[in-house]
Design a protein around this nucleic acid. Structure first.
Lengths: 210, 210
DNA sequence: GTCTATATCTTGATAGAC
DNA sequence: GTCTATCAAGATATAGAC
């Protein structure tokens, strides 16, 4: 159960309550223009309120940004845990990997700017924001380490790779799709996130060679 | 032959002439703190000059940033072409891929912030900067399309992937190493960029499965 | 090619009414 | 919970001396 309920994916933009609308619009702007080039005036204007009103919900711009990143990780972590719960205990490792890649990519493309901001904007975030977010990121990455360790101990992973490096490669590779994949306009090879998950799982599992 | 000679990798920081020192320090700051949160004051202070002096070399902050990104792509493109020239005409496709992955990664980690900024900061760059840089990015990507098309026509590429998608996956995957690989501190699996290139070529070619 | 000085604008944030 | 009004600091950029 999440500590804070997030209504971003269920409700349409106009229906969102004040705080959530600020988060949504801010996340979109941060993702598009970056943190430093997005002013509180920009955000307020997008929401349709005055800049000062933001401070009723968030004590500073950094706190607002931190909360956006936190929500994104929360979505992703919950998707991982849900997938684990759904997986049959003796599912073959290939299936488990595919399921988690799909869960990760779905979280990435379904919760719009919250999850994407963790990939695109986090690397250049202010130090205070990074420091606040790193622990929650770590908790998510450890879930992947556990998953990949199981693959390694059952001899399914390239023995030359250690688990941490494998995780970085896998997550880095699937995260990089954020730069070009758009689930709304259908593409030749991957029309849906499910298609994309299949393609990317094939990449990390078998490579792109024929 | 490059239009503008760039002395960034050959000369040490203190030896750089005015213009190049500004570029170097600015690139480092943009990469660390992002574009919007890096002021011309920050850059001037890092170089040891006054903010106004920057305008003798660059007409605006956006022009300075654009030039940084351009230099990064120039390095990478030249590395690609050099690799092509060095490759034996009848080298096996696996070798050609490995050589180009290594060339790309070497450019990425050897020219410090210039190339890295193209991955980390470009996605949130101002529209004017993006517009100026996109054409040169495209020219580089087309080189990869050509390379991968050759692999595809010789039946070495997964036939379910089209060339554009394969290129995005390959470049996205190897570029994502910028987030965690550090050539200066040796790591367990990849101590050098050459090691990293081997690991990443294996990923895109054969996957990480055992 | 770098400086001092400064113009002009925008920024994050606060105070206090409603 | 949103508003008006405003502050103090920092932003990009310019003018002109050396």
């Amino acid at each position: 159960m999440p500590i804070v309920s997030v209504t971003t994916s269920s409700a349409s933009l106009a229906e969102l309550t004040g705080r959530d609308r600020i988060l949504q619009e801010a996340a979109e702007l941060f993702l598009t223009k970056g943190y430093g080039d997005t002013s509180l005036r920009d955000i307020a204007s997008a929401v349709g309120i005055q800049p000062a009103s933001i401070y009723h919900h968030f004590s500073s711009k950094e706190v607002l940004f931190t909360e956006i990143l936190r929500i994104g990780i929360e979505h992703t972590t919950e998707a991982f845990d849900r997938t684990n719960a759904d997986l049959n205990a003796d599912a073959p490792p290939g299936i488990a990997l595919l399921a988690h890649v799909e869960a990760h990519l779905t979280a990435l493309f379904d919760h719009g700017p919250y999850t994407a901001a963790n990939i695109v904007v986090f690397p250049v975030a202010p130090d205070a924001v990074k420091a606040a977010v790193v622990p929650i990121r770590d908790a998510y990455e450890q879930r992947w380490d556990t998953l990949l360790r199981e693959l390694a101990t059952s001899g399914q992973l390239d023995p030359d790779l250690d688990v941490r490096m494998a995780r970085r490669i896998v997550l880095g590779s699937i995260n990089s799709t954020i730069e070009w994949f758009n689930p709304t306009d259908s593409q030749k090879d991957a029309q849906s996130v499910t298609d994309l998950a299949k393609v990317m799982t094939d990449l990390v599992w078998k490579g792109i060679g024929a």
